[in-house]
């Protein structure tokens, strides 16, 4: 339950930042926090108190945590990093044309 609570708080915090903050970089940070919340939740829920899913050479213990969510989260983290980089690039470019990163002053983002 605690994990779900932390997940909800972080996810809504991120969504709040994306919707109500005006600074574009803050909005990207909000997006990052949303992603972090989801990934944290996936890993926290998939932890069943067993060991890391890596075999030791000499002791073949076979009670592992579920490795699938970890693999999926890894994919998600990397995709998230590339989308963040792309978004920041757009913001640099926009700042060059509009001289601001305040979304209130950019009527194109507000209609």
């Amino acid at each position: 339950m605690l994990h779900h609570l932390v997940f909800t708080v972080l996810f809504l915090l991120g969504l709040y930042t994306v919707i109500y903050k005006n600074n574009l970089i803050k909005m990207v940070i909000g997006l990052n926090i949303m992603e972090i919340a989801v990934f944290f939740w996936v890993i926290a829920v998939s932890d069943t108190g067993k060991s890391v899913p890596i075999y030791h050479l000499n002791k073949f213990a076979a009670s592992f945590n579920d490795p699938v969510p970890q693999a999926l989260t890894l994919t998600g983290i990397i995709i998230g990093a590339s989308t963040t980089a792309l978004l920041l690039t757009f913001i640099i470019e926009l700042n060059k044309f509009a001289d601001t990163i305040d979304s209130n002053k950019l009527e194109g983002l507000n209609e």
Partner: peptide
């Protein structure tokens, strides 16, 4: 592969 996450990925 010893690392199952790598094996899956």
């Amino acid at each position: 592969a010893l690392n199952l996450v790598t094996a899956i990925l």
